[in-house]
Each structure stands twice: as structure tokens, then as C-alpha cells.
Amino acid sequence: MSDAETTIPRPSLGRLFWVFLVMGATSLGGGVVAYLRTGLVVRQRWLDDVTFVELLSISQTLPGLNATNMSILVGDRLRGGMGALVATLGMCLPGASLMIAAGFLYGAGGDGPWSKAFLHGIAAGAVGLILVVLVQLGAKTLKTFADYVFVVVTAVAVAFFKVPVPYALIAAGIVAIWWHRPRDKDVR
């Protein structure tokens, strides 16, 4: 680690908070990962692309959202525990404030026919957005026929047979991990 200290930049906690706050306020439309890369790798040069992809793969494997997991990992890398905390707060503050306001506004006037019509419309649009995320996630993750079988079995069990997610996650997860288990002849 002592070797790494010379190469990893150490922005002040205030600066770290500010940069994540700006990303948290401007990353409209869900594609937070693209904003993170532009902000951290291109503009601030706090990370190189190799590190960014490595941290992203940790973020995607662990539970939690990519945006917050990345804030924690990058903040910790740059400024330790406090860095992780201020980066995450900066990332979450704008969206959280807006959605708290949305909760109150909805309670006040969400039942009107016009706002209902608007919200029903964006719900349909959001389904399209999820399908795109699904296709992109699938293209990156699914390599063999067996992977597609795991996807379909998990989805059918949860969506049609109402299997509780933890059971599906543990059962399918164990089988899928075992299927991809390290074999002696593999050279990885």
C-alpha cells in the first residue's frame, strides 16, 4: 500500500464530496456508470480505466446499486472510510431530496387524472428502459446456453410461481456457481 500512496491522488474530503454531489445531481436518466467514468477517469483523473473497470466489476457482483457501491469503493480508495462516506452522501443527496419532495407532492396531488395519466405513461416508458438494461446486462454476463437456462428458470420461478427471491437466489446461485466451478484442467 505504501507504494500505491504515491500514485493514488488524495483530493480533500470537501472536494470529493463536491465532485460526487455534482455527479449525483447531473446523472439524469439512470446511466450513472457513464457519468462516473467521465467524472472520475476523464475529468478528475482520480482513477485509470483499468481500476475503474475492476471497481465496477466488484460493484456489480455485490448487492447494492452500482452508483452507491462505486461511490463507496472510489471514496475508500482515495480517502479511506471518511472518503467513502462523503462520496456516497454526495451521490445520494440530490436524488434523495427530489424523491422526498416527490413523495410529498404525490400525496398532495398525485390522484388527479392528469398526473395519473402522466405517471402511467412514464411507467410504460420505464418498462422499455428496464428491457434495455436487461439486454445490456445479458450481453455482458451470459456466455453459454446454461447461463440462459439459469436466467429463465430464476425469472419464471419468481415472476410466475411466486418463489420468494432469497430462495430463488440461493438455490439458482448455488447451482450456477457449481456449474461454473473451477476445474483442474482450466488455466485461468
Partner: peptide
């Protein structure tokens, strides 16, 4: 790698289940 690939496909399955349930309502 086994954990990363194995959990990856199950995660895609869970997102698909979410999309189906959401689609039913929307």
C-alpha cells in the same frame, strides 16, 4: 470467476422477473 459468472446469470434472471411483474402493472 465462478461466483462472478454464476451470480451474474441469476441476477439477470431477477431483473427479468422484476421487468415481468412491472410490465403486468404498467
Amino acid at each position: 470467476p465462478a461466483i462472478q459468472t454464476g451470480l451474474g446469470s441469476v441476477a439477470v434472471g431477477l431483473v427479468l422477473a422484476g421487468a415481468i411483474i412491472m410490465g403486468r402493472g404498467a
